[in-house]
């Protein structure tokens, strides 16, 4: 049998050590909390004054907190506060905040952090460079746009956009790592802060081997209505990845022409279910009376969800004629009777 006594001592002993450690941590945390409150006030005051005075007295501020700036945690705090204010305000206030940041020499530390191995410190530094628009660091940041750590490369991509706007999208030429949906959304949001500036390369990205780049390129076409790329987008509808095809359907709906609904009806049968739904919804926007026979034909599907969407599409294409068309839809048989009732109520609203 195993000797139990040593184990008992070990467990009790470790518990005790952990407990003491915990109390020390708690004590430090509570002290820091008080300190943070004080520091917070100082920072808020400086930031308030910076945001709302056109001519800031940066020198004064710097003097008043000179000694505090030597403390790492204080620097972290004021940096965080300046960053969040910079995100919230534009125009003069934004410029003043950047001036304040530079006068306090906070950029010195960001360079240090950028070269750290630790991914989250590095990513945070990159984020800071983007927000504070430290253009001189462009090259250093750009190098990280295909970094193997997801957060580092994502922050680098975002920062590049923040620094140079649409031109920054050229990282899409070379990025081989996937860009998640989340970050695609953030990239689009960042772009929306800039005035639209024509950019090249979308046609190349649409053919990228990286499917997330293809999807993102399609979103760009969608967002900026790049009608001239219709042909290139059309090709993506035969892509092997169903998510790419789905985004293609959505995008092409935005830049549609006379042949688009034809294309949709052609690929409908062979598409996966979720894409069928997307096509049916898209036809609500771009479908014409000519598509109605096709849609009626598809109503033979057993799937009720699809039936409902198709019926809604028929109704939306020609609301005035819906009453007449209904006669062809087996309006007395379940479930069409109920679906029609619901759709009628919807188009009335």
């Amino acid at each position: 049998m195993i000797q139990l006594k040593p184990l008992i001592y070990l467990f009790f002993g470790t518990s005790l050590v952990l407990l003491i450690y915990m109390l020390v941590i708690l004590y430090i945390k509570n002290i820091n909390r008080e300190k943070y409150k004080r520091w917070s006030k100082i920072c808020n005051n400086i930031i308030n004054n910076t945001v709302y005075s056109d001519d800031i007295n940066v020198k004064n501020h710097q003097k008043s907190i000179e000694s505090l700036l030597l403390i790492k945690t204080f620097r972290k705090l004021i940096t965080k506060k300046i960053l969040s204010a910079t995100i919230s305000f534009s125009g003069n206030s934004n410029n003043s905040l950047r001036k304040l940041y530079l006068h306090l020499h906070l950029d010195k530390y960001v360079i240090e952090n950028l070269n750290v191995k630790n991914w989250h410190i590095k990513a945070k530094a990159i984020q800071e460079i983007g927000i504070m628009k430290l253009e001189s660091m462009y090259d250093k940041v750009y190098k990280n746009t295909n970094h193997k750590n997801e957060l580092v490369r994502a922050e680098a991509q975002i920062a590049i956009i923040k620094l140079v706007g649409f031109k920054g999208l050229k990282f899409l030429d070379s990025v081989t790592q996937p860009i998640s949906e989340w970050y695609q959304m953030i990239l689009l949001r960042e772009l929306s802060h800039f005035d639209y500036d024509s950019f090249n390369g979308v046609d190349v990205w649409l053919k990228s081997k990286n499917t997330s780049v293809v999807i993102f390129a399609l979103k760009l076409v969608d967002e900026y209505h790049l009608f001239e790329l219709y042909k290139e987008v059309e090709l993506c509808i035969y892509h092997s990845d169903e998510n790419v095809r789905q985004q293609t359907i959505k995008t092409i709906t935005k830049i549609f022409n006379n042949s688009t609904s034809n294309l949709f009806t052609k690929i409908f049968e062979s598409e996966v279910f979720s894409n069928k739904i997307v096509i049916a919804k898209s036809l609500q926007e771009i479908g014409t009376d000519d598509d109605i026979p096709f849609l009626i034909n598809q109503l033979q599907t057993e799937n009720i969800q699809l039936k409902t969407v198709l019926t809604r599409t028929i109704a939306k294409i020609n609301p005035n004629n819906f009453e007449t068309i209904c006669k062809e839809l087996n309006p007395d048989i379940y479930p069409m009777n109920l679906i029609i009732l619901q759709i009628k109520e919807e188009i009335r609203i």
Binding site: M1, L7, I8, F11, F12, S15, L18, L19, M22, K29
Partner: peptide
Amino acid sequence: YFINLLLMVFSFGILYSVFAILMEV
């Protein structure tokens, strides 16, 4: 022996809880 076994399980239970509380803190 039996009491030792019980004590061991008991002490470990406490260790695990304390560790969890520490993580919370």
